[in-house]
Simulated scan of single mutants.
Amino acid sequence: MVDDKDRQSIDAAKLYYGSGFSQAEVAARLGLSRPTVSKLLGHALERGFVTITIHDPRERSDELVAQLTARFKLADARVVTTPAGGTLLTDLGSAGATLLEELVHDGMTVGLSWGTTMCSVSEHLRQLPLQGVRVVQLKGGHSHSERSTRDMETMRAFARAFNATTELLPLPVIFDSAKAKDWVTRDRHIAGILELGRSVDLAVFTAGAIAPESLALNLGYLSAAETQEIMDHAVGDVCSRFFTRTGTIAAPDVDARTVGITLADLKGRPTRVLVAGGAEKTQAIRVALEMGLATHLVIDQQTAQRVLDL
């Protein structure tokens, strides 16, 4: 429902953003005060009547892009530069969303992981007039702790942006036993979603660091001994599959209890977008790229240089 404030904010936005008038000029044309116009422009942004996209040519033309694509045989890479006072997560989310808007088209199946980076990507997606898109959850995301995976929130935002239907996995990603996991995944509905995840046209995911505060280690799935095993042997995870420095599975018993796409199945998808950054993720990103898990990469400048220097 569009109310009077919405209408005024749209009129103000058209004059300010579309016609290039100053806020004072907009105020004079609409018979309002300049502070009121400023508030209306803010309201237009909050309501989604106006979206602002920043195209940074450095994301594509930087020498780091050429080095990354050549070294890791990538189809494309975007390297973001976060200004002083900026937020890395916001920049990764914005660049990731821009790349996905270029890649997703009618009739595609899009597989999603979860986490703070993925949620940031979802928050920056614009609504596109697509048809026949299906968004598939690649792994379970229910938390047994106070930490949230934000999986449902991320799925809903992707679905809104791409005018898509969703296929949800309302399960924990790691079960207490392999037997329980096998029993649940034999369910016809769950098995169908997992099979769809294995065959998506495009997968978008992040890489997780291994640290005591890591989200994947604080969802109530793991015992203290299992957490220590992962801390001792893993350098990162993709889709909650923990891997070692050489790309092997770090905790086979935990992996056997994990519900979601395997690294082998992920690697078989035609388009695979890895969005990740930050110094603590350097080794995880490097190994994921060496394993060939990504065809497209979104990363920040400093981490990109660290990945190449390892």
Rank of each mutant, 00 (worst) to 15 (best):
D106C: 03
L202W: 09
A95F: 02
T87M: 12
W114M: 10
E167M: 15
T117E: 02
A211D: 10
S199M: 13
A95K: 08
A95N: 08
R126S: 05
V133K: 06
L171R: 03
G197V: 12
T116R: 09
V173Q: 15
A84D: 03
L112M: 00
V136A: 01
S148D: 15
T82G: 05
R134S: 14
W114S: 06
K181A: 07
D182R: 08
G115P: 06
R198Y: 00
H144C: 01
L100K: 07
I210S: 03
A164N: 04
T165R: 10
M118T: 11
A178F: 05
G192E: 12
E167Y: 11
R160D: 13
T90Y: 14
E123V: 09
G96W: 07
H105D: 11
L130S: 11
H142N: 06
P129H: 06
A164W: 05
S177T: 14
I190C: 01
T117F: 00
C119A: 15
E153D: 15
V121C: 07
K139E: 01
P212Y: 02
V200T: 10
T165N: 07
N163P: 09
R188I: 14
H144M: 12
E213G: 01
S143P: 12
T154F: 13
G96H: 03
T206D: 11
M118N: 08
T81E: 09
K181I: 11
G141H: 06
G192A: 13
I210Q: 08
S113F: 00
Q127S: 13
D182F: 03
S122C: 03
G208H: 05
M155G: 02
M118L: 01
R147E: 14
R160W: 10
L168K: 08
L128C: 05
G197H: 10
V79R: 04
A203Y: 00
G197R: 04
T185H: 04
K139T: 05
L202G: 12
V79I: 15
L99Y: 06
V79Q: 03
R188N: 07
P170E: 01
Q131F: 09
G107Q: 09
G86H: 10
E101L: 02
T98G: 05
G141M: 12
A164Y: 02
L169H: 06
S145H: 12
Q137L: 04
G132W: 14
D151C: 07
T117Q: 03
N163Y: 00
R188D: 09
R147D: 09
V110Q: 00
D151A: 09
L100E: 04
